[in-house]
């Protein structure tokens, strides 16, 4: 009998599929470096680099042109840092064809909700995310993506990188 090392027995998920949820911040970069250092030398992992562009309601913008410009700038920025992160992972030893880069534009009340939705759809067994290190007051008013994921994510492990 052979063991299928692509299966993640603990979570029951389809395979050893790690999602790294990122943005342009230093802590997101640290999360990518961590995954590279920690898992880069092993085989059998599928990686998804995910960046969510949380699109505000159309009424947030003065007109559709402003909305399109906002989205275009966000996507251009995202493509740049996602390419940088992909390089880090390839340099760490992950095969290029095992790295899935996704930039999703979504509407929701929080980025965390989008990340969890994507994790459930892709059946990732682990979410890796950087922590911003915000103050209690900032978390109270603006919310914390990493805390929300810790509280809300189900059937997966969550790694929060400081």
């Amino acid at each position: 009998m052979t063991t299928d090392h692509t299966k993640c027995d603990i979570t029951g998920m389809v395979e050893r599929h790690i999602m790294i949820a990122v943005d342009s911040s230093d802590n997101a970069r640290r999360a990518v470096l961590f995954v590279g250092d920690f898992f880069g030398c092993y085989e059998g992992f599928q990686l998804t680099l995910l960046h969510i562009i949380l699109e505000p309601e159309a009424t947030f913008f003065s007109d559709n042109e402003a909305r399109q410009q906002w989205l275009s700038e966000k996507q251009t920025d995202a493509r740049k840092f996602m390419e940088d992160y992909r390089h880090i992972l390839v340099d760490a030893g992950f095969p290029d064809d095992r790295i899935n880069v996704r930039i999703d534009t979504m509407r929701a009340s929080s980025v965390a909700d989008c990340i969890i939705r994507e994790q459930e759809e892709m059946k990732c067994c682990t979410i890796v995310i950087g922590r911003r290190g915000i103050s209690k007051k900032e978390e109270f008013i603006f919310g914390s993506t990493s805390n929300r994921i810790i509280h809300e994510a189900k059937k997966c492990a969550v790694l929060v990188i400081e």
Binding site: P56, T59, F60, S109, S110, V111, F142, G143, T145, R148
Partner: peptide
């Protein structure tokens, strides 16, 4: 009034 807070769009309302 409108604002953009991607970690929780409604946090300021709850405050």
């Amino acid at each position: 009034y409108d604002y953009y807070q991607e970690a929780n769009m409604f946090g300021y309302d709850l405050f």
